[in-house]
């Protein structure tokens, strides 16, 4: 079944939409959730929540890329669950390390009180990403959107892990400079 046919099922409120979505995307969504949560049960519940959220959202917001749309929901649900989770479990290592790396973007910022408007920040990041090459985008988003290990992303781009780390370092630094120029840092 194509994405267009799947989207039609949602718009027609056909309950087969969810089982059809699961048949096509479950594996992918489980990987998205597992990268963040590193817990099978939590990841399965997160994926369940994703299907329900998609069912609620699609009639009013028809996605151009259904897979990306579902991944976005799954990622947010997984991050929210990770943050709210008070049970004793091991935090996904890659999420924690990614967070630590991104803190460099804000290191030394002298205005911790500044409230970043999320929408403006998102738009600024989109403009920044659009100026990068496809390979840089793939590396940067592979690390900080998808929380993949550096080695995996490097392999998918056909470069060494050391090169990937260098590119990520330079991109984080460029992002910092860009956000400073756009007025987000002070």
């Amino acid at each position: 079944m194509t994405d267009a046919e799947l989207t039609d099922l949602y718009q027609n409120r056909d309950e087969a939409a969810i089982s059809a979505t699961a048949a096509r995307y479950q594996g992918m969504l489980m990987r998205v959730a597992m990268q963040i949560l590193n817990d099978r049960e939590d990841a399965e519940e997160c994926v369940n929540d994703t299907y329900l959220a998609a069912w609620d959202a699609v009639p009013s917001a028809v996605p151009a890329h259904l897979g990306a749309f579902l991944c976005r929901i799954a990622r947010k649900k997984a991050i929210d669950r990770l943050r709210n989770n008070t049970r004793k479990k091991r935090q996904a290592q890659e999420y924690a390390v990614s967070l630590e790396e991104l803190s460099e973007v804000f290191a030394g910022d002298s205005s911790p009180e500044r409230a970043l408007e999320e929408t403006l920040l998102t738009e600024a990041i989109e403009r920044f990403l659009a100026e990068q090459t496809a390979e840089v985008r793939k590396l940067f988003l592979g690390r900080y959107y998808w929380f993949c290990p550096v080695r995996e992303i490097a392999q998918s781009c056909g470069i060494s892990e050391a090169n990937a780390k260098t590119v990520l370092f330079r991109t984080r630094r460029k992002l910092r400079e860009y956000l400073e120029k756009e007025g987000f840092m002070s």
Binding site: R31, H65, G67, A68, S103, V105, E126, L141, Y145
Partner: peptide, 29 residues
């Protein structure tokens, strides 16, 4: 935490960026 805000802002970027970079996709538009 500011890096958390960055993570959240990244979460709202356009679908085109997500689709382009998806490492888990089996087929792609």
């Amino acid at each position: 935490m500011k890096e958390e805000q960055l993570i959240d802002a990244l979460g709202k970027i356009d679908d085109a960026f997500i689709a382009e970079s998806n490492p888990f996709a089996e087929t792609g538009p």
